[in-house]
């Protein structure tokens, strides 16, 4: 695994860059809240709307809060919401797709209809509706984000399973005495995991964007909690009056995070594919 990682990174430096960026984001999420130079909630009206300088790297907002500290502290919340929703949809959607593809019949019909129903809505509007109906708490944002990604996971898992259900090694596993469940979990699933991992990395980016988007329109995390979406929303009003940094820096951090997970998807596929191990 480590050897193949080195090999892949050596072959494709962009993957190495994505992994470095990913480590940085994870580090920010882990130690950010304890290492932030300023209290992200402490306002200082004397120092409001200062442009970026040596003390406040990303400047300060209308209440004089340090934007860099707020961006850093927000990493844990934003990445946490995205990771939780991706983990949830991976488990539920992944297994639903696996079962649908492997058993076919009525399971396939039922799972397919549920996925189609979700797909029938504009996804962000659906997420808005779910959060609006259930109340804007963090668990509900996680749930809404997971639900809108459900069809994607079902389809990938189902399609990959259908291909492998007919594969020679599945018959070979039956000949070797594996029952249905065992064939599914030990033979089919490990073979579609790399694709699911790529899928997870890609949807991770969308999940961050989705959570931030919900907060941006006021349906997600509530102020004054530092969150990238809210910060962009709060800063948006100041762009016309020339205070561009209030919205730009949280937006840039958001973009870098989404970008990182998209790049990571490609690299992950290469690392996890046994055919790349030479």
């Amino acid at each position: 695994m480590i050897a193949s990682f080195r090999h892949v990174v050596g072959e494709n430096p962009v993957t190495g860059f994505a992994f470095a960026l990913f480590s940085l984001l994870v580090l920010a999420a882990l130690v950010g809240p304890s290492q932030a130079p300023f209290d992200p909630l402490a306002s200082d009206t004397m120092a409001s709307l200062r442009p970026p300088n040596g003390l406040h790297w990303f400047g300060t907002d209308q209440l004089g809060r340090d934007i860099f500290s707020r961006c850093l502290v927000a990493a844990r919340l934003d990445l946490g919401i995205a990771a939780a929703s991706v983990a949830l949809v991976f488990l539920v959607g992944g297994f639903a797709g696996l079962a649908a593809g492997f058993y076919g019949g009525w399971i396939d019909m039922a799972v397919g209809r549920v996925a189609d129903t979700v797909m029938a809505f504009p996804l962000f509007v659906l997420a808005m509706g779910i959060v609006a109906a259930l109340g804007n708490t963090v668990p509900n944002i996680v749930l809404a984000t997971a639900i809108i990604n459900f069809p994607l996971y079902v389809r990938v898992a189902r399609a990959e399973t259908v291909v492998r259900r007919e594969a020679g090694f599945v018959d070979a596993a039956r000949i070797s005495g594996h029952r249905d469940m065992s064939v599914l979990l030990r033979q089919v699933m490990p073979n579609i995991l790399p694709l699911m991992a790529v899928q997870m990395s890609l949807t991770m980016g969308y999940a961050i964007l989705n959570a931030a988007g919900l907060s941006f329109i006021g349906l997600g995390v509530r102020p004054p909690m530092p969150e990238w979406g809210i910060m962009v929303a709060e800063g948006a009003g100041f762009i016309v009056s020339g205070e561009w940094w209030v919205a730009l820096f949280p937006g840039a951090v958001l973009m870098v995070a989404v970008f990182c997970f998209n790049l990571l998807g490609d690299g992950l596929r290469d690392v996890l594919d046994p055919r790349r191990r030479t």
């Binding site: 020679g168 090694f169 070979a172 073979n191």
Partner: peptide, 12 residues
């Protein structure tokens, strides 16, 4: 099996 390559799990 006819195709030995295809009948071995690629992760094995």
């Amino acid at each position: 099996f006819q195709d030995a390559g295809e009948s071995i799990n690629p992760r094995f």
